[in-house]
Amino acid sequence: MGRLNDKVAIVTGGSNGIGRCICETFAREGAKVVSFDVNELPYECVNVEGYKGSVTDREAVADLVSYVEDKYEKIDILVNNAGITRDALTQKITEEMWDLVVDINLKGTFNLGQAVGPFMMEQGSGSIINIASVVGEYGNIGQANYAATKAGVIGLAKTWAKEFARKGAGVRCNVVAPGYTMTDMMKTVPETVLEPIREKTMLRRLAEPQEIANGVLFLASDEASYITGHVLSINGGLRL
């Protein structure tokens, strides 16, 4: 018996990186998973299906939710993972760089929560997990736009934990805030950049995607049935 047996999950940004690992982990644990991403699903995994669309497109989000409702008749888990970076010092961030990061990371998360949260309330149960970042907790030079959005998704989850639990609904909303993680993108970063990060991390290494997915799995599962409004920092003791 898997920890998510018979659960239905939507994961945004599930085509690669941490999102892909979350999808595959959920599927192994018995869930039916729909990956909502601007890219086609580039891998095959039993119980994971791709649904192409952008989190910034409210019509596409509504269509996604209708599709999952019609096919599975419930939505047990929502993981808001989709996100991008456009890094620069504050004085060099263009309006386009700011707007793009805010639209995808923050407004995109809001769009999914606004569409799925009320459905979960009517259903009487559900688990929403927003993927933030250590940068959203502590800030980081050259990432004002990204840090602002990741702090914002923490605020959204804490608000939803209050709003979506009204009238006795068992809807939980939590956050996972990863530190630097060894995704395919991070593997292209020069060692001269990675080594100082390791030095600032108590465990002296970067996370593996599975270590982040394990935390998301816990919060999505019934094992976390009395946890809501919580930020789970999975960063190896990193302090920026």
Rank of each mutant, 00 (worst) to 15 (best):
L89C: 06
V216M: 03
V11G: 09
R20H: 00
E69Y: 06
T90N: 10
V68L: 11
M185C: 02
R58D: 05
G236F: 04
S225L: 01
I141H: 13
A144S: 15
G83C: 07
A157D: 03
A144M: 14
I212F: 10
I77G: 00
T25A: 02
M121K: 13
V38M: 14
E199S: 11
Y138G: 02
I77L: 08
V55L: 06
I234L: 14
V134G: 12
E211F: 06
F119R: 14
I10T: 09
T228S: 13
K150M: 12
W98V: 10
G236Y: 06
M182F: 01
S35C: 01
W98D: 12
Y43G: 13
A115C: 00
A165S: 14
A88W: 09
P196C: 14
G83M: 04
L156N: 02
L41Q: 15
N105T: 05
T109L: 03
G83F: 06
G237W: 14
Y226H: 04
V8R: 05
N105V: 09
G139R: 09
N39T: 07
G19E: 05
I10A: 07
A88R: 12
F110H: 06
R166W: 01
V231I: 15
E69V: 02
K74A: 01
Y180V: 13
G170L: 10
N80E: 06
A207H: 07
N5M: 09
D63L: 12
V48R: 10
V8T: 13
I212C: 07
N130W: 11
S225V: 05
M202D: 10
N80R: 01
C45W: 09
G30M: 02
E59A: 08
I22P: 01
V135M: 12
V171W: 00
T56A: 03
Q210N: 08
T183Y: 06
I154V: 14
Q143I: 13
R3V: 07
S127L: 08
A161R: 04
G17E: 05
S66I: 00
M186C: 03
G53K: 11
L106K: 11
P42E: 13
D63V: 10
G108K: 08
N140M: 13
E24H: 01
A147T: 13
N81D: 06
M202I: 12
G53R: 13
K92N: 15
A9T: 02
G19Q: 01
L219H: 04
E223I: 00
V189C: 07
D76F: 01
E199N: 14
L4T: 11
T183W: 08
R205I: 03
T183R: 02
A151S: 15
Q210A: 10
S233W: 02
G170V: 00
E199W: 02
T149Y: 07
L238R: 09
Q143G: 06
A169G: 07
E191R: 08
V231L: 05
L219K: 07
I93T: 14
S35K: 06
V134I: 15
P178G: 11
I129Q: 04
G53Q: 12
I93R: 10
I93Y: 05
A27W: 05
I10P: 11
A224F: 09
A220H: 04
L89Y: 13
Y146G: 09
R198C: 14
Y138F: 15
V101C: 14
D37T: 12
G155I: 11
R198W: 13
V8F: 09
F26H: 05
V116Q: 02
K200R: 15
